[in-house]
Write a protein that binds this DNA or RNA. Structure first.
Lengths: 210, 210
DNA sequence: CGTACTTTTGAATCGCATCAAATCTGGTGG
DNA sequence: CCACCAGATTTGATGCGATTCAAAAGTACG
């Protein structure tokens, strides 16, 4: 049915690259499983009963929901980390999850995850902090997207994501444009406009407000 | 300094209206305090050391950050519930929080809050679930804001916030416009356009896709 | 019955998306 | 080392959709 190739994770190698997983080791080693999805593959489907919590190791997953009128709505695009944590709360999935690109997913049984949350204080705290951080990030992003102009969004980005009015970009400007929900052309124009006006300074991949 | 009027909460009345607080009762009763802020009052400031976690009971708080070039950036607008949870993670505030309207805030000492998370399993779970739900909501909202047209945002809203292609609005359309990050005029026009086209049906404060 | 707020429609304007095309860049293989 | 290619960057022209300003009609509530 699903195009999964199930295998055992090499837990040590994994935890080295994803430290948040390290804390799960005591509980999850031996029971967590890899799932590999090729592009378009379905991970779970609306109505199914959740059995696992997922941690996305590679690729992009899309969470979509089907409207009654046939329209398909993208609820979320996952790039990495835990997802489908709603499983803890609901007995059925409310959306479909499919692989937008080839993916590698770690599947951790719900019981193991819940147990770790209850009894593994270190994991719990790390997880809690990660969640709180995620919430802050998302809120900040929403605030940013609500800004009407490209310029305001860019300033907001530099102030909130950077340090002391200065960000180092670890991605091409094109990707930043996506993050700001702008066409890359609009971002380029805004940047050069602000640079000309002396509001911003560009040195390589560093942006600085002045 | 700050225009707080500190007093003891009537915990029972509070917990009735804010069930998530109920679970904190064993730990927090007797140590949590009210702070009343009048409009413009400062709750905390960048650089200060956090002592409490806050729960907003009434009013709006704005979290702002000052850019090096003097610009002020709104990081987040709080309408209710726990906030400033970053306190658990950082020894200093990274932003200012001030009352956008008159506010009532419950201040719970950090130690009490952290202790409850560690030792009060029911509170912890409720809090965890609330966080997870918040994250889902925020992500969905971001996805929505990223949509280019008023129409697409509206459809997304109905599908994700409603049930079976139908939402009942508990707020005036003007407020919905804000949530969708549209001017209310744009929303009105979009609605009537879709209604005329038979894509949407309006009955009182219920919107239905067809 | 008046006041405040929401809902509605109109007209002008602005900013961004889109389509197009040129240049630049880093990395590849011959 | 150079030719070449894919992707990133940049600039230009056009059009659309949303914002803004304005004004009127509807609605709730004391």
């Amino acid at each position: 049915m699903k195009d999964n190739l199930v295998s055992r994770p090499d837990w040590k190698a994994l935890a080295a690259k994803h430290p948040e997983l390290l804390l799960l080791l005591p509980q999850a080693a031996g029971v967590a499983k890899f799932k590999k999805l090729s592009q378009g593959g379905l991970l779970f489907q609306q109505g199914e009963q959740p059995r696992d919590i997922y941690y996305l190791l590679a690729g992009d997953i899309q969470i979509v929901r089907h409207a009654s009128n046939g329209e398909i709505v993208v609820v979320h695009r996952v790039h990495g980390g835990f997802f489908a944590e709603a499983s803890l709360e609901f007995p059925r999935y409310h959306s479909d999850a499919f692989a937008f690109t080839d993916c590698v997913v770690l599947a951790i049984p719900l019981s193991v995850y819940g147990d770790a949350l209850d009894n593994n204080a270190a994991f719990r705290r790390a997880h809690f902090v990660a969640q709180a951080r995620e919430i802050r990030k998302l809120r900040s992003r929403i605030e940013r997207l609500a800004l009407p102009t490209a310029r305001a969004r860019l300033v907001h980005y530099i102030v909130t994501e950077g340090v002391d009015g200065s960000v180092e970009l670890d991605q091409p400007l094109k990707a930043l444009a996506g993050e700001l929900n702008l066409s890359h052309e609009a971002l380029y124009r805004t940047l050069s406009g602000m640079a000309k006006g002396g509001v911003i300074e560009r040195r390589g991949n560093v942006l600085r407000l002045r």
